[in-house]
Design a protein around this nucleic acid. Structure first.
Length: 440
RNA sequence: GAGGGCGUAGCUCAGCUAGGUAGAGCAGCGGCCUUUUAAGCCGUCGGUCCUGGGUUCGAUUCCCGGCGCCCUCACCA
């Protein structure tokens, strides 16, 4: 948007959600009153124009305005972003760049920084493409409770709230998992949910307290099936929204074309840290962590230490898509034991650009084993692990009625969108990221 | 939670380790201008220099505390 006013004829650019075009306003065409109104316009005012289209002597398509109407007058000046094209390069002057102002006043950010609007348009297209893909395979989109008397399905601290009429504590969900699996018990063979989860954790460029998660559960399938689904789905989405499987994320070229390699967790650690942790006792693991300069807490169990070493030594190397699979059982209280090794579970996490974008497993459907796993979690909680999972009696009761073998998946949608839109911060893919309240 | 950086006009920034209570461009306002495109020219308005304290004759500038934002690390998706 820009206005170039002159005495009796002026140029301006008008813009809507899709494009901008130049208008040419002449005193002798619109009349004195309309021209007077035009001269009072500010950038950000909303107008309607009618007129013929012409090409100016510099070759720009331009509307010669015959009628001009002011639709909305603004009272606050819009930050002016000036652009100049030089040798095909677009130079921007006076950009509205203050990140705090951009996040707090996203409406201004969207108006002024049009590229931001495109990122969010892609966000919408990515989610639509995902729905299309899942719907096309016959999976049913469902909704489960956000307010839960017992939170579960992930290791995280919850937000706590209170219901007045029932006078009871409720938690904002940290995951959809346990309710969706109840629906599998109920007999659906494929359900998914795309919705907000809430975790009472720190905020950084890959974490927002409320974030969008997609969870999918498919009966009579296992984690191998789910790996194929993930690599295919992500690639299909990229093809549909971006038209390519080759993307660039923060300078790294990434090829999403399936199949993605499968790399067992212990093999990955051995590959990048040079040590095979498999079979090590807790003391041995603690010593190894120290040697590798990985900081750990005293109360941590073997699984957590392994996870920490992995996070510190391996994650950053996983730029191209890869499935890290077969995690230690202690880390995954809801996953089924590995068919070949009961100390492991059939679980995988897809990594792209050094970042985990999901988590999946063959779901644990043995109610007795599940009860044991919950018991182990409760012990961790007593030992001081605030994020350990809580026993859910009704969920166990559901499993006791019989859940078929099931494959489950959770995907962080915001992170997938960051990846596909090449955004460095989760705050650049969430319209209104969580911020401290503005001080008056 | 720890470390680092930043916070000056509506926007983008300068001034600040040579302390004398602020400046540019754009926007706004008033003029001139019938093919401009970062339009131009003339004039003009605009600031608790984030906040509270300290040092000082005097602080936007130096020191300390606070608040906010960003980055890195830690926890997690």
């Amino acid at each position: 948007m820009a206005i170039r006013k002159m005495g009796k004829a002026s140029f301006a650019h008008i813009m809507d959600a899709t494009a901008r075009i130049q208008i040419y306003v002449r005193l002798d065409q619109v009349g004195e009153d309309a021209y007077a109104v035009f001269k009072l316009l500010d950038i950000g005012d909303i107008i309607g124009v009618e007129g013929e289209v012409m090409t100016t002597k510099t070759g720009e398509i331009t509307i010669v305005v015959a009628r001009l109407e002011l639709l909305t007058k603004n009272l606050r000046p819009l930050p002016i972003v000036k652009e100049k094209e030089e040798d095909g390069q677009k130079i921007t002057y006076d950009a509205f760049a203050d990140t705090e102002a951009r996040y707090r006043q996203r409406y201004v950010d969207l108006v002024v920084n049009r590229a931001v609007m495109d990122v969010f348009r892609k966000r919408s297209q990515i989610i639509s493409a995902m729905r299309d893909y899942l719907d096309g395979r016959g999976y049913l989109e469902v909704e489960t409770p956000v307010l839960q008397p017992i939170y579960g399905g992930a290791t995280a601290r919850p937000f706590i709230t209170h219901h007045n009429a029932l006078d009871m504590r409720l938690y904002m969900r940290i995951a959809d998992e346990l309710y969706l699996k109840r629906l599998i018990v109920g007999g659906y063979d494929g359900v998914y949910e795309i919705s907000k989860d809430f975790r009472n954790e720190g905020i950084d460029r890959t974490h927002n307290p409320e974030f969008t998660m997609m969870e999918l559960y498919v009966a009579y399938k296992d984690y191998n099936f789910m790996m194929q689904l993930v690599e295919e789905m992500v690639n299909v989405i990229a093809q549909k929204v971006l038209g390519t499987s080759r993307i660039t994320y923060q300078g790294s070229e990434i090829d999403l074309t399936p199949p993605w390699p499968r790399l067992p967790l212990f093999a990955a650690i051995e590959k990048y840290a040079g040590i095979n942790l498999y079979g090590m006792a807790v003391d041995e693991l603690k010593a190894t962590a120290k040697e590798l300069h990985v900081e750990i807490e005293d109360f941590w169990g073997a699984g957590k230490i392994i996870d920490e070493i992995f996070a510190n030594k391996v994650e950053a190397h996983l730029i191209q898509p890869v499935f890290i699979c077969d995690y230690p059982v202690e880390l995954s209280p809801l996953a089924k034991r590995h068919r070949e090794n009961p100390k492991l579970v059939e679980r995988f996490e897809p990594y792209i650009a050094g970042r985990e974008i999901g988590n999946a497993f063959s779901e644990l459907n043995d109610p007795l084993d599940q009860r044991d796993r919950f018991d182990s979690q409760m012990k961790l909680k007593e030992a001081g692990d605030e994020e350990a999972q809580v026993l859910d009696d009704d969920f166990l009761r559901a499993l006791e009625y019989g859940m078929p073998p099931t494959a489950g998946l959770g995907m962080g949608i915001d992170r997938l969108i960051m990846l596909l839109t090449d955004q460095a911060s989760i705050r650049d893919v969430i319209f209104f990221p969580t911020m401290r309240p503005e001080k008056q």
